[in-house]
């Protein structure tokens, strides 16, 4: 259907604004990215950076009050501007979503199997034993033991990790071209996290879906994503292949995030680094570069608080929005603390 070079999903200059009593909230301010077949794109950022809003905008699930502009193309077909009724055949069939907290995202009063079956029935005319077999097969795919019995149970009878697997089973029920996972492992402990991420990989091997993995956890991205977009205050600040991003970050915010990761080889006495300050309000975004009040490399007064840096290609497949992207020194272990401003506290970012 699509040539390998053509992106499956292409987002161009996406803006999302919510009206509020204090003024318009510009939650997403010009996101541009594309995902290809069999590719995993990580979207990383703090709470409130616009990650989830971006994914909801792609599926057209935002409340009616939200103003969405820009372009979202699936296999070249524009999705922005479609009515709810026109989006329904796409949701769950072409683009499916895995939500963060499966305990609240699954309906507590329906059996897990029935909820998965429903996802299939909406789009396909299957019923009876055929449908049942598919549901059990899906549960088996995501690694749920005794899938037949489990299908007849309710979400509260599942453990956290199993609920998330069930959620994934539901989202891949129709083998969608694009799978958006919004913080799929945030509510899980680390071992279960690894198992769930492994499920994603296995599924992708089979279906060659494009996966958009939204997370605030760089550790999750490191193991699974091919490319990573870092978001700050509703904008992309850096995008690179996963290795480039980790070894050669070109934006001070990315460097701050990396520096704040706990390290296995770090001294137990040393404290975690953090990025100073708070994420900005999306109603009054700082002038110039939105990150400048928290940035140690900023030229203030000067370019950083006056001119908003545009995204620039630094190297092949690596772009960043920083006036000093090229000048930043390479990141070494000893630089890690400097990159975060040298400020040390016990706070996690």
């Amino acid at each position: 259907m699509t040539s390998p070079l053509e992106p499956v999903l292409e987002v161009r200059d996406l803006h999302v604004t919510f009206p509020s009593d204090d003024g318009d909230v510009h939650a997403v301010a010009g996101m541009t990215f594309a995902v290809h077949e069999n590719e995993t794109l990580g979207i990383v950022g703090e709470s409130g950076s616009g990650k989830s809003v971006t994914s909801m905008a792609v599926l057209g699930l935002l409340p009616r009050s939200a103003k969405v502009t820009g372009s979202v193309k699936l296999h070249g077909h524009e999705l922005i501007g479609l009515t709810d009724a026109e989006m329904q055949p796409i949701r769950g069939e072409q683009i499916a979503m895995v939500f963060q907290d499966a305990l609240t995202a699954l309906n507590p009063v329906f059996k897990v199997g029935d909820q998965i079956a429903e996802a299939i029935k909406v789009h396909h005319d299957v019923s009876g034993p055929d449908l049942e077999r598919r549901v059990v097969g899906l549960l088996e795919t995501v690694g749920i033991p005794n899938p037949k019995d489990r299908a007849g149970q309710y979400p509260h009878e599942f453990s956290g990790g199993m609920r998330q697997r069930a959620m994934i089973a539901m989202s891949i029920a129709n083998e969608p071209a694009v799978l958006i996972a919004d913080e799929p492992t945030t509510a899980l402990d680390v071992t279960i996290q690894a198992q769930v991420l492994e499920v994603f990989e296995r599924i992708q091997e089979r279906t060659r879906s494009s996966v958009i993995l939204i997370t605030h956890d760089l550790g999750v991205v490191a193991g699974t994503a091919d490319r990573v977009v870092v978001m700050y205050a509703g904008r992309e600040v850096e995008m690179a292949n996963v290795d480039d991003l980790f070894y050669n970050p070109r934006h001070p915010y990315t460097r701050g995030l990396l520096a704040s990761l706990p390290r296995v080889d770090g001294s137990r006495l040393s404290r975690l680094n953090r990025i100073k300050g708070q994420p900005p309000s999306l109603i009054a975004v700082p002038s110039g570069c939105a990150f400048h009040p928290r940035c140690d490399d900023a030229e203030v007064p000067g370019r950083c608080d006056l001119i908003r840096p545009e995204l620039r290609t630094i190297e092949q497949r690596h772009r960043a929005a920083c006036h000093f992207a090229e000048q930043l020194p390479p990141l070494s272990t000893t630089d890690l603390s400097a990159a975060a401003g040298g400020e040390k506290t016990t706070d996690h970012v």
Partner: peptide, 21 residues
């Protein structure tokens, strides 16, 4: 609730989302 968002993300019609979920 989140489960209503999930129901919509499945591609269910609004009537079914409201009256069932």
């Amino acid at each position: 609730a989140d489960y209503v968002r999930t129901a919509r993300a499945k591609g269910l019609r609004p009537r079914k989302v409201i009256l069932k979920h």
